[in-house]
Design a protein around this nucleic acid. Structure first.
Lengths: 132, 132
DNA sequence: GATGATATCAGTAATGATTACTGTTATTAT
DNA sequence: ATAATAACAGTAATCATTACTGATATCATC
C-alpha cells in the first residue's frame, strides 16, 4: 500500500524529530493535539506503527516498562531506563563493543541467533541529584 | 504480610518446577486447572507475583513478546526468544562473559548503572528443522 | 480545475494481558 | 475449639493497543 501524505502524520513525525527523548504514543498524542485539537489517539498509534514499519522511526518495547517508546533515531544504539522516573535515555557507546555478543552466545546454542536486545537499568543523573 | 500455605500455590510452584521452559500465566492456569478445576486465573497471577516477589521464582518480561513468562530457575542466566514460535529457551553461557557490560556502559554515562537486560532473538532448532 | 479511486481520518468499540474488588473459605496460632 | 486473617473463586475494572466504520482529504488522471 502506497503511503499518502497526511498533515497529521507529518506533525507526528516532526514532533518526534524535535525530541531527543523517546516519547510514548500518549505523549505524542497530547502534543500533536495542540495543533490538531481533535486528532484521535488511534490515528497516532496507526501512524507511529506505519512509520516504524517503513523504517522511518524506531519502536522500542522494554520489558520492564509496559509501554512502547518511539525514536526518530533509527541507527542502532543502546538505551538506559531509569527505574526511578522511567525515563528512556540514549546510551552513547561504540556499537562494536558488543558486536561479539551474538557469536559468543552462539557457541552454546544450536538454533540461529540473529540478534539481541540489550538495555541498561539504574538511576539517571536527574534522580540521583534530587536524592541528595 | 506473612505467607500462609495454600494448595493452589503449592501446585503452581510444583508445576513451574517441573518445566524447563518458561510458562506464561495462562499455561500455568490451564495446567493447574486439571487438579483444581475451578481455580481462578486471578489466583494464578496473584500467586506467581507473590512467589516472584519473595524471590522463589523469576518473572521475565520480554519487550518483543507482550506476555510475561515465569521461571523456577532464579539464578542469573540469559534467554533466547524464537521469533518463529515465540518459545523462550535458556541460553547456557558463562555469566562472567558479559560481566563487563555494565562497567563498559558506565564509561559514557553519568547516571548510575545497576544492571542490564539482555536476551537473544532468532530461530530455534525446532523451527529451523521444520523449514527444511 | 473537476472527477474518481482510495488512503487517512475521527470516533468509538473491541481486544488481551493483568490487576483490583468482594464476599466466602481455608489455614494457623492461641 | 476459636478467632484472626491470608487466600480463595468469581467477576469487574484497568491499561495500552488494535480494529472497525462511515466521512474526509489526498493525488493521479482527464
Amino acid at each position: 500500500m502506497t503511503m499518502k501524505y497526511s498533515r497529521q502524520r507529518a506533525a507526528i513525525l516532526s514532533f518526534l524529530q524535535s525530541r531527543r527523548d523517546h516519547p510514548t504514543a500518549e505523549l505524542v498524542y497530547s502534543s500533536v493535539k495542540e495543533e490538531f485539537p481533535n486528532i484521535s489517539l488511534g490515528t497516532v498509534y496507526r501512524n507511529l506503527n506505519q512509520l516504524a514499519e517503513a523504517g522511518i522511526i524506531a519502536k522500542h518495547s522494554f520489558g520492564i516498562l509496559g509501554i512502547d517508546h518511539y525514536d526518530y533515531n533509527t541507527s542502532p544504539h543502546y538505551h538506559f531506563v531509569c527505574s526511578c522516573c522511567n525515563a528512556v535515555i540514549d546510551l552513547p557507546m561504540e556499537h562494536s563493543d558488543f558486536s561479539s555478543i551474538d557469536s559468543e552466545a552462539s557457541k552454546n546454542f544450536d538454533g540461529l541467533i540473529q540478534g539481541h536486545r540489550l538495555y541498561f537499568c539504574g538511576i539517571c543523573k536527574k534522580c540521583l541529584d534530587q536524592k541528595s
